[in-house]
Write a protein that binds this DNA or RNA. Structure first.
Lengths: 244, 244
DNA sequence: CGAAACGTTGAATGGTTTCAACAAGAGTGG
DNA sequence: CCACTCTTGTTGAAACCATTCAACGTTTCG
């Protein structure tokens, strides 16, 4: 079987670990319980208990937290190949909500499925924990961006990071990528107002760096954008840990 | 042996799981390799490879990331009982730096020690992963704070969260706690300028909510502060997962 | 067709930063 | 022991980045 024939998750993990046929089989079996969710309706709501985890196979999801005053902070976006709710399984309660941005397909993974898979193939367990650590590193980088970058750099960094992530599952390149997010999503993710997001996007467009329009991100000057963002993809480029 | 006779880590884990004598023994053995570090000099520098992890037994540490333009974002503070660098072990390279804020004592934990301990007592492994998930939840809450809270609420929330964490290891109460941080630390953690931190602290003090002075945080009106911060400690109060 | 969601733009406001200056205490070396 | 420097804290004034408010255009969809 070629890598392309598999799910985005397998494609992602394969970029870092050469998986054996047996491991590929276990991974395939994790994808058995297929489910779909419609855009806009929360799949998991913050405070909900005893949740399953999911592997996203198509579509986009965002994980977010709502505050008492109604403002929303998007913590992360999930794209095909990403795990979703891994932490909610370990803590018994989910501390944030998940909302599908478009209609999505996902494989439901019960706690027992996951533990069984880990018991069968420790190398796979390590690979998945590696992916989880990489997600955590992205949240940290997100934190740094919101705390210490101005709006332009923040936006530029965000669009670049998303591009790198999508490239890993074959959904983007240094030319650009399809992106179903609205300016409201960007605002809630970057800690800005929707109005300001619009202005920032205009400025980046008029500087011939990127265009965000009609569900498509187009890079016009990738290098220039990297400079604006001070984008260093080191935290995404980790090679596999403990795996020879 | 009573809980008080043990390390802060044991004290923390004991608040959520009743540990057996055998598990306590394994934990004690993880504390064998004692080391000290002096204030101000990085124990781990971002980009450094093949790092050990540490269990902090006394003193305070901060983990941070420096950007190209020299600005610093503190991601988290570690207090006694906290793990440090657990992720750096899994990813081969550390993506951020650790700096002791005061002279500290820590137990060095080699990757092999950790894996051995996990193999011996799966319940302990779960407990430690639970603690790691809790740390991640705090980073997420931190992200929300920087993205969507104004400076006053951010500061109030931060001081309250720290208080709750310290209370768990017996170093603080709703009256207050000792705190070796400078206003610069607060600024770098909260994504503010040091000047503004000073003003915010003054305002909170003049509203008779908290005083931050001479290495001591004193709560004057705990309830009032909770209101300002919209502090909901749910994400800290998880009861243990998968452990009956 | 009307409503709802998304995008766009201008003007006024405001929270936060920057710049600048000074005070107090700790540590250092002459 | 004093002068010196360094770190930390403090305060005012000006400048700025981002928000809020408000209005309007566009597209989608029932």
């Amino acid at each position: 079987m070629t890598v392309e024939a598999h799910s985005p998750l397998i494609r992602k993990l394969s970029a870092f670990v050469a998986l054996s046929e047996a491991e590929l089989g276990v991974l395939d079996r994790l994808h058995r319980r297929r489910r779909t969710f419609v855009a806009g309706r929360d799949m998991v709501h913050q405070g909900q208990s005893d949740q399953a985890a999911y592997i996203l196979s198509s579509g986009w999801v965002c994980s977010y937290k709502i505050q008492a005053d109604g403002t929303r902070q998007i913590v992360d976006f999930q794209i095909p190949g990403d795990f979703l709710g891994l932490r909610s399984v370990l803590l018994r309660t989910s501390d944030h909500s998940f909302e599908p941005i478009v209609n999505i397909e996902a494989a439901e993974v019960l706690t027992s499925d996951l533990l069984d898979a880990f018991a069968q193939t420790p190398r796979l367990a390590t690979a998945i924990l590696w992916a989880a650590s990489r997600d955590e590193a992205m949240v940290v980088e997100h934190l740094v961006g919101i705390g210490r970058r101005d709006a332009d750099a923040r936006m530029a960094h965000f669009l670049l990071e998303l591009g790198s992530r999508l490239a890993l599952v074959g959904m983007g390149s240094k030319k650009g990528y399809d992106c179903p997010l609205t300016q409201y999503h960007l605002a809630d993710a970057l800690g800005l107002s929707a109005v300001h997001v619009n202005r920032v996007l205009r400025q980046l467009r008029e500087s011939d760096l990127v265009t965000f329009r009609d569900g498509r991100v187009t890079f016009h000057d990738y290098g220039g954008l990297v400079d604006v963002a001070e984008f260093d993809p080191a935290y995404l480029d980790q090679t596999g840990p403990l795996l020879k």
